[in-house]
Design a protein around this nucleic acid. Structure first.
Length: 568
RNA sequence: UACCCCGUGGUGUAAUUGGCAACACAGCUGGUUUUGGUCCAGCCAUUCUAGGUUCAAGUCCUAGCGGGGUAGCCA
């Protein structure tokens, strides 16, 4: 149970405890438990997403906070959906988030024990073999408002049930022809208690047990007992299992085994995001994204590739809290969490996205001067680097306007601006092409205004970033935006699907020019490109091509003003 | 329509468990700044409604309203 990374500001402990911690405190005080043992129990049928991160942080975090233990257990009771690829990715993701399980388990480890317990329930008259098929079972179950009716096979003798169960196990019956069901109450208002199925016959190859079994336990029949076997004290799960708790309790009580306490919390929902595994799988399978780790995916692997840090995800998760209210978190909270972290730790670099040529007419021809640039104004220990400055520069087209609005503090004709870490320059002219577009900006520099040693007293409103044209390094930039264009992609009109809400501009690839220092960067390095945003070097980079992903843009109050028409 | 759960600023989460509704994010104002970033300050609430208990109710009681979950041999 180790948190391997350093703490960060928004990971500091909350001032008050959430309802699960309060429940634990009460149990501890009442002597009901002696320690805290939790587990994270994913089904290996897909990649983990940010919602799972909440569960991971909760379960591992509780164990940490109370000096207890937390297991990782794969809930692999349905071989038709589960794959080894997923069990590997899940382990990678949990570790990457900064957690280490105390022990690793599989529900399939308990198949033998589960089966023995099933025979016990049969012998105790608490379970029976039912010959109804799936459709008949549904019909007998009744509805939300009407009670069900008893299966015609409900009153078989324990001995007969035992024989039939053994035949089920040894493969005497075809798939779907029989089930083992708990004998509870077909009239219960809680449908989970209307003689729930414990075992179904399913000839499928299991990723761990192979073809040893042709009957597989249902979730309810496997989950609580798995918790029990591992000595779990708190079985923490999401709200939709609330109605299953009476059944969870019934199994533990009927079996007279260690009885963990199930506590439910609200799963994480986020704006501009879909979270269902089915939909994420569809995005991957239909190639709307480039795989599970596409940087636009809300998967842990997607966020990792996007450049999110584990610290920022943990910070986000503690920040949004744990409760039973079914809420939707604004995705800007996630974006803000990574900004907050990266602002403190990411070194700055200058990169020009949409370049226009800027010539300094009074610069000594051919001369290149190395200027100092601060690596991180938030962290003096990050030091300084050197950047080549010359008479031929590239700046962003956004940073120049001939006819600028009143509040435009960047470069305009007849105006002045500071070149970050360089000099103040004055724009005296522009060069245009035949269509009248500005293709080159002509400036003079003020030698008295060198950054760090400026005694001129000159003040200018704006500072812009730049690179020296000769030394500039081309970089392929993948500017990612939200995958969906609307706040709630799950809400769709008749005849449409969530796919209709995909944001067509969620990725734009562009060629940019970076200061030469960028050449020393390797995959996984994160930077703040000054005035633009945070970026991470992607694994697709090679000797010949540097590829970076935009993690999140910087806040842009100028852009906001322009959008609101307040720039004048 | 049955059962279960949940309702506190725009969004989330708190409130010493009956004692001045707080924090964060967003938004809006302004300040600082060699990143229009960061940072700093200010503003932003009839606690779903109606009754009741109480010196005192977000918290307790009653009724209503609203939202979510549940009818897989999925998890």
């Amino acid at each position: 149970m180790t948190d391997t990374s350093t703490s960060n500001a928004n990971e500091s402990p909350r001032p008050s405890k959430h309802f699960i911690e309060q429940a634990i405190d009460a149990d501890l005080a009442a002597g009901k438990i002696k320690g805290v043992h939790t587990r994270f129990p994913p089904e290996p049928n897909g990649y983990l997403h940010i919602g799972h991160a909440k569960s991971i942080c909760l379960n591992f975090g509780l164990a940490q906070a109370y000096g207890g233990t937390c297991n990782l257990r794969f809930d692999d009771t349905n071989p038709s959906k589960e794959e080894t690829e997923y069990v590997e990715s899940i382990q990678d993701d949990v570790r990457w988030l900064g957690f280490q399980w105390d022990s690793l388990h599989y529900a399939s480890d308990y198949f033998d024990q589960l089966y023995q317990w099933a025979e016990k329930l049969v012998l105790d008259g608490l379970a029976y073999v039912c010959d109804l098929d799936a459709e008949q079972t549904r019909a007998y179950r009744g509805t939300l408002t009407e009670p069900g009716k008893n299966s015609p096979h409900r009153d078989r003798s324990p001995q007969e049930n035992l024989e039939l169960l053994r035949q089920m196990k040894t493969g005497e019956f075809p798939d779907g022809s029989h089930t083992l069901r708990a004998k509870i109450d077909m009239a219960s208002p809680n449908l989970n208690l209307r003689d729930p199925v414990m075992y179904r016959i399913m000839r499928a190859h299991h990723h761990r047990t192979g073809d040893a079994w042709c009957i597989y336990p249902m979730y309810d029949w496997a989950h609580g007992q798995s918790d029990s076997i591992e000595g779990i004290t708190y079985s923490i799960c999401t709200l939709e299992f609330e109605n299953h708790r009476p059944l969870y309790d019934w199994y533990c009580q009927s079996l007279e085994i260690h009885h963990p306490r199930q506590i439910e919390f609200a799963r994480l929902n986020m704006t501009y995001t879909v979270m269902s595994k089915r939909k994420l799988l569809q995005l991957v399978k239909e190639n709307h994204v480039n795989g599970w780790d596409d940087p636009r995916m809300p998967t842990i692997s997607g966020l990792r590739r996007r450049g999110y840090t584990p610290e920022s995800i943990r910070g986000f998760v503690t920040d949004v809290g744990v409760a039973k209210f079914n809420s939707t978190i604004d995705v800007v909270r996630l974006e803000n969490a990574v900004r907050e972290h990266l602002n403190r730790v990411a070194e700055r670099r200058m990169v020009v996205m949409d370049p226009i040529k800027l010539t300094i007419t009074n610069w000594p021809a051919g001369e290149v001067e190395m200027v100092d640039a601060i690596n991180n104004p938030e962290d003096e220990s990050a030091g300084v680097r050197q950047i080549p400055f010359s008479g031929s520069l590239l700046i962003s087209q956004d940073d120049f306007q001939e006819d600028a609005p009143r509040k435009f503090f960047r470069l305009k004709k007849g105006g002045a601006v500071r070149l970050r870490s360089g000099y103040i320059i004055d724009c005296h002219d522009v060069v245009k092409d035949d269509d009248g577009n500005v293709i080159e900006i002509l400036c003079t520099y003020d030698p008295e205004t060198k950054s760090g040693q400026d005694n001129s007293g000159r003040k200018v409103k704006g500072t812009i970033h730049w690179v020296s044209a000769q030394q500039a390094v081309p970089v392929t930039v993948r500017n990612y935006d939200r995958l969906f264009a609307v706040e709630n992609p799950d809400r769709v009109e008749e005849g449409k699907t969530f796919l209709d809400h995909l944001n067509p501009d969620s990725l734009s690839v562009t060629q940019a020019f970076a200061e030469p220092e960028i050449k020393s960067a390797t995959a996984g390095d994160r930077f703040q490109f000054e005035r633009l945003g945070y970026y991470v070097v992607d694994a697709d980079s090679s000797e010949s091509e540097l590829v970076v992903n935009r993690i999140v843009p910087l806040r842009d109050s100028w852009g906001k003003m322009v959008a609101k028409g307040k720039a004048n």
